[in-house]
Amino acid sequence: MTRRLLLTSLLTSPLALAQQPTAPADHAHAVEIPGLKKELFAGITEADFMKLGDKPKTVKLVLVATFSAANYGMNFNGYSHGKAIFTIPKDWNVEVTFINPSPIPHSAIVVEKDMTKKLQMGEPYFDGAGVPKPEVGLSMTKAEFKFVADEAGEFALACGFPAHAINGHWLALNISDTAKAPTLQLGDKPAVEAK
């Protein structure tokens, strides 16, 4: 009974029912989220979200949780609900820097896109594709992980903390066997190739 009440309260909370606010065009931190360790993401811009790596067929991604106040802070790089789309060619190496400047725990994990509809994410889809203990999350710190995108399909870069992804804390990750280069589409803007 207690478990059912907890689940009901989670699903009917303002976070579960909230519509995603539009991310600011310039990603300025117009509304302050209290307690952020701002030095962890100072100077990071859209140009830093995806870059080519030093080695061939390698792409580097930066995911900043609580980048802005959009979606009550449950966003990566100011976007949520899959409104930013990373497209990676199949068999590329992906190196991810995850930053959470917030005292509220968040994490990052690659899962099948349908998993974002669940309260818990489980294990990462690809070997190594997530921070350690994503269900516990990390606060006010950085973490790195890397994986090989060795299977085409529709995936998500999701927060693995329970109930965060179902409330929109995820971005789309498409692994493509036809793409020639990695691209990133932010909201309604055209996709941009990694440099």
Rank of each mutant, 00 (worst) to 15 (best):
M1V: 11
S9M: 14
T12E: 11
T12S: 13
S13V: 05
S13C: 12
L15W: 08
A16I: 02
Q20C: 15
A23I: 00
A28E: 06
H29F: 12
H29Q: 15
I33V: 12
E39A: 12
E39H: 14
D48M: 10
G53A: 06
L61R: 01
V64A: 00
A65Q: 05
A65L: 05
N71L: 00
Y72V: 01
G73L: 12
M74E: 02
M74D: 01
M74I: 06
N75L: 03
N77E: 09
G78Y: 07
Y79C: 05
H81S: 08
H81V: 01
K83I: 00
A84G: 08
I85K: 11
I85T: 15
I85D: 07
T87K: 10
I88P: 02
K90Y: 05
W92S: 01
V94L: 06
V96Y: 06
V96L: 07
T97H: 10
I99E: 06
H106Q: 04
I109R: 08
V111N: 03
D114M: 01
M115K: 14
K117L: 06
K117D: 06
K118Q: 10
L119W: 06
E123S: 15
E123M: 11
P124L: 00
V131N: 02
K133I: 00
P134L: 05
E135G: 07
G137S: 08
G137I: 01
L138S: 04
S139E: 12
M140P: 00
T141Q: 09
K142M: 09
K142C: 08
A143T: 04
K146I: 00
A149K: 11
E151K: 15
A152R: 03
G160E: 01
F161C: 00
F161S: 00
F161W: 04
P162G: 04
A163P: 09
A163Y: 13
H164W: 08
H164Q: 13
I166N: 05
N167V: 02
W170N: 07
W170E: 02
I175T: 08
S176Y: 12
S176T: 06
D177L: 08
T178W: 03
K180F: 10
G187N: 05
A191H: 14
A191L: 08
V192E: 14
V192F: 10
V192L: 11
E193V: 15
